[in-house]
Design a protein around this nucleic acid. Structure first.
Lengths: 165, 165
DNA sequence: CGGTTTTCATACTCGGATGGTAGGAATTCG
DNA sequence: CGAATTCCTACCATCCGAGTATGAAAACCG
């Protein structure tokens, strides 16, 4: 469950474009604003252009701008454009896996994971983030202080010889 | 957002052990039951043992069995044992990332993603899956037929507005 | 037209992860 | 003892992630 640099860069760049409005922004400016290696960002922007999320123009006064309104581009759109499906199991889509015996119902778990991923990523737009006004359900999810705590797996009772409550 | 073969194998193997009860199961049997390469499964089982999720014994009548009750081991436990943190952004934990300018609130999105991942993975146990009796919230999440449909990113032309809220 | 600025395309590197395989040592049992 | 099984170390092939280098193509300026 890893957000790659490419996805991270793509989302941040598009947020920057959402904030910039309709006039074109140069790759060099975007790279410096978000601290992204310039040439690497160019490759990401190429994917975004081929995916139809941004338009571009060359030459002086050239640059990149959003191809659609920032309200209509979700984080899920960005991930699918630069990386493919939101969730996959060993390269397959969750609905395509097939498990034997007692593991049969494991498929439902992966489906539920995808449902919950979608519930967040398909319901936050670039405009939401750029304006700093996240949707209500997002506020609710992140307002629990536990949401910000790191959680490590429980220490096994076996290797802690002495103390166990 | 990719479930690796290692995680998939680990979970399925532990479910098989949950179904097998307290008597030891041999790696060869587990490999064949779940169609996993035998030697690769051995490496996975080694991680699970070092992580304290299974115990083992050698020799004839040897094998592997769960170190804790199947009701007390969640899918999240398994993922953290064999792969590390549930969610990460460019190798960092979501609470540690720091974004400039209009992207600042993007951190909250990643936090929300982790919250929703935890909501599923920390609340399904090996016993739930092995018994085929998933918790109610899981049933609810997967009973929507849309949960099983693949979703592709919208075509470049604007057609359907996403149902928000 | 020439020169400058920018995007665009291609190819390359480099390390680490992923998904395995092989061979043999250690342990347990009959 | 000998057979069965886990356990350990090493190895391998391939791909992916992240980034670099070089230069061609387009757009604008005068």
């Amino acid at each position: 469950m890893h957000i790659t640099a490419k996805v991270d860069y793509a989302v941040r760049t598009l947020i920057e474009l959402a904030a910039a409005g309709p006039s074109p922004s140069k790759a060099e400016f975007l790279a410096q604003s978000q601290t992204i290696p310039h040439k690497f960002l160019e490759a990401v922007l190429a994917d975004l252009r081929r995916g139809g999320l941004v338009n571009s123009r060359r030459g002086p006064d050239g640059g990149y701008w959003l191809a659609r309104p920032a309200e209509d581009i979700t984080i899920a759109d960005v991930i699918r454009t630069v990386e493919g499906p939101l969730a996959s199991v060993r390269g397959e889509r969750p609905e395509d896996v097939d498990y034997a015996g007692p593991a049969a119902k494991l498929q439902d778990v992966w489906i539920a994971v995808r449902v919950n991923l979608r519930a967040v990523l398909e319901n936050v737009s670039l405009a939401d983030v750029a304006n700093g006004q996240l949707p209500g359900f997002l506020i609710t999810l992140t307002s629990d202080p536990g949401a910000w705590e790191r959680r490590t797996r429980p220490a096994t009772s076996v290797d802690e010889g002495a103390a166990r409550g």
